[in-house]
């Protein structure tokens, strides 16, 4: 294990957690999944979280996003401490300042694709429905799913569904977009499709935190952190991604293998 690595600091960091721990007491003995994680995500940064299975990647994401409450430690979003917020306040924060993309594209079966994308945006700005609809229209157009807007969620491909997830997440103009293995259930062509969309969102200025075990996907990030046994053990700056930068993936593979990936 590497020691003494220095956590990069960003000015005006929209998201930061300090000494974050999470212990599940339902198991015997109790399971410590996060053991004091310090992490800061800069404005407009694309951060990839990697690590082997069970290292605590998804738990970190859910605790930073307020979907789950940490056992101890703090999480700040745009300077606001999240761990002390009540459920309703936290829900409001998720609604207005965060977006989510999951491995499985979760949608309501009784709404068409457009309604599903509209749902959080309309809830966030109920009095401004015309502006919301036009924003969603342009997002669907931008991510190439405009033609399936009236389709049911069982009528479209997995790639289209994940792109719809990205549209839904961006529709509220969040401060941070969280993605948990967004390509985990997709084939390679759909994976490229979705990663292009995420890269596109990022290039538009969106801060992105993505958990993944796919180095090809992680190579799109500005920075990669490596998680092992609930601790961040290493970090690597990759800089802005360019489609023609062939060495980037090789460097990342080498770094990962150095971390025992």
């Amino acid at each position: 294990m590497k020691t003494g690595f220095v956590m990069p600091q960003h000015d005006h960091a929209p998201l930061a957690c300090r000494n974050l721990t999470k212990t599940y007491h339902s198991t015997d003995p109790a399971t410590e999944v996060l053991r004091g994680v310090d992490l800061t995500v800069g404005r407009g940064e694309f951060l990839a979280v990697m690590g082997s299975s069970g290292s605590g990647k998804s738990t970190l994401l859910y605790n930073m996003s307020g979907m789950d409450r940490p056992t101890s430690g703090t999480v700040h979003l745009e300077g606001r401490e999240l761990t002390t917020l009540k459920d309703a306040e936290l829900s409001r924060v998720r609604l207005t300042r965060m977006g989510f993309i999951f491995q499985q594209a979760y949608f309501l079966n009784n709404l068409n694709l457009q309604d599903n994308i509209l749902l959080p945006a309309l809830k966030a700005a109920p009095g401004d429905s015309e502006a919301v609809v036009s924003r969603v229209d342009s997002l669907m157009d931008r991510f190439g799913i405009d033609h399936v807007r009236r389709h049911g969620v069982t009528q479209v491909s997995g790639g289209q569904l994940q792109r719809a997830s990205i549209c839904r997440a961006l529709a509220t103009e969040p401060a941070v977009l969280f993605a948990d293995e967004p390509t985990g259930a997709l084939n390679s062509s759909m994976t490229t499709e979705v990663m292009d969309a995420l890269t596109d969102a990022h290039s538009g200025g969106t801060t992105l935190v993505m958990v993944t075990h796919d180095p090809v996907c992680a190579a799109r990030a500005d920075r990669v952190v490596y998680l092992r046994d609930g601790r961040i053990t290493d970090s690597r700056e990759l800089g802005r991604w360019r489609a023609d930068d062939g060495r980037r993936e090789d460097e990342l593979f080498a770094w990962l293998s150095g971390n025992g990936f």
């Binding site: 996003s65 979907m67 459920d87 309703a88 936290l90 829900s91 409001r92 998720r94 609604l95 207005t96 989510f100 999951f102 979760y106 949608f107 309501l108 749902l119 959080p120 809830k123 966030a124 839904r168 509220t172």
Partner: peptide, 10 residues
């Protein structure tokens, strides 16, 4: 999913 996109427990 609803909780993630901002619906509260209430």
């Amino acid at each position: 999913m609803l909780s993630a996109i901002g619906f509260s427990a209430r």
